[in-house]
Design a protein around this nucleic acid. Structure first.
Lengths: 220, 220
DNA sequence: AAATAACGTGACTGTGTAGTCATTCTTCGT
DNA sequence: ACGAAGAATGACTACACAGTCACGTTATTT
């Protein structure tokens, strides 16, 4: 997924075993830079934010930024990485559940598995999700490339899932690609509005309505 | 919608009656600049493209750009404007049809009216739609502000429409906002994939599947 | 065809930015 | 306690960009 060599610049031989002051400082700086970047990216967009801005927001010197990250794209990749991992695992678990499924009922179970796997993302990294949604349709070029790559991956895997379900007679739809993409679009739009405070409804109410929409849309 | 004074810099007293060489040249330059901008924005993103790039792509001198547009934001607004107008009219017509509607059947008719109103946009300005989809979740700031404003407008009007239908007992849903946003999200995602060639299906087949999805999702 | 004014040009200025590096500060091993 | 190496700093370089402007070109008017 990462096209560059190694993610971040930190790991070329680090001293001080885990727990030492060096190690703690390093983690703290990394977190500061990532959080500063995330804040600024959300407020002004990835492309308009400069390294100077990020360093200033993180309370460190510019030169120090380059000790931790290759460039802005590398920082973006670092910010988005955990989301990609969680998502990948959720997809994996869903596909595994799908391989066990034999009827429509267990199909719903598989989707539920997926939704459950997404919870830690929604609860633990809501701002990363916002950044993803904000920039996910960027050209696959420059600093936003890692986000676009993630978006392409999500769409591909959603289609793959639906296609699998259709091929194994768990689901009947006109076109699995269209169905999968419609669901992805609906979910992402709702997440976007909700995370931006445009939907003041209770989260579980939104989730419930969404699920009923998806099931109704997915059903034969 | 436009926060600046006047859209574009052209209209401060223009000479040569419509049809004269001046007039034709002026229109041609405007079109060249808009098309060049659109091309580059789609390829590299609005924020990363420079005025130099646009002027070069349009085959004109940089200084000339500023004769036609205030700045990049102004150009973006000019590119997106026709889409905004077509959309606004389609929404107006749909709402008008909704005001005449008395049952579920005429509700579907109203939605059909809307879909029909969108055709000239989809057929006549597909690249503008792509640009909109690409940048519609940008921060409401800088050159991409006009696009974000359009996106906010679309969501608001979609919600307004659904809310109206629910209040007049043409439709029963858990939450009109959630339903409306889900539909918008699904449609936009499908348009995005289709316009980027990821959906090689025939347009009318995609449209049909989409409509059946929407109706099923919308229905009580 | 001569005068007028818009149109078009590209060099120029000021500002801002990515990335580097010599230097100073902090932590680690002994 | 002290030397070695990582961490942090911010001035610095080289370049790129937005916006301007004095000048040359082309259409329009009379």
């Amino acid at each position: 997924m990462a096209s560059k060599e190694i993610l971040g610049r930190v790991p070329p031989e680090r001293p001080g075993q885990p727990g030492g002051k060096r190690d703690r400082n390093r983690r703290a700086r990394l977190a500061q830079l990532r959080e500063a970047g995330l804040r600024l990216f959300l407020a002004h967009g990835v492309e308009t934010v400069t390294i100077d801005d990020i360093a200033k927001e993180a309370g460190t010197a510019k030169g120090n930024f380059y000790r931790y990250f290759e460039d802005k794209e590398d920082l973006v990749a670092g910010i988005v990485q955990p989301a990609g991992e969680i998502l990948g695992e959720a997809f994996d678990r869903c596909l595994a559940a799908l391989e066990e499924a034999r009827d429509e009922r267990s199909l719903f179970g598989a989707y539920q598995t997926f939704a459950l796997g997404m919870l830690p993302l929604a609860l633990g990294h809501p701002d990363v999700v916002r950044l993803y949604l904000q920039e996910s349709r960027a050209p696959a070029e420059g600093a936003r490339a890692p986000i676009r790559a993630l978006a392409d991956d999500i769409r591909a895997r959603a289609v793959q899932l639906t296609r699998y379900a259709v091929e194994h007679d768990l689901l009947t739809v006109r076109d699995p690609r269209v169905s999968a993409l419609a669901v992805v679009g609906a979910v992402e739009q709702l997440a976007w509005s909700f995370l931006n405070g445009e939907l003041d409804a209770a989260p579980d109410e939104v989730a419930r309505t969404l699920i009923s929409l998806v099931l109704r849309g997915i059903r034969t």
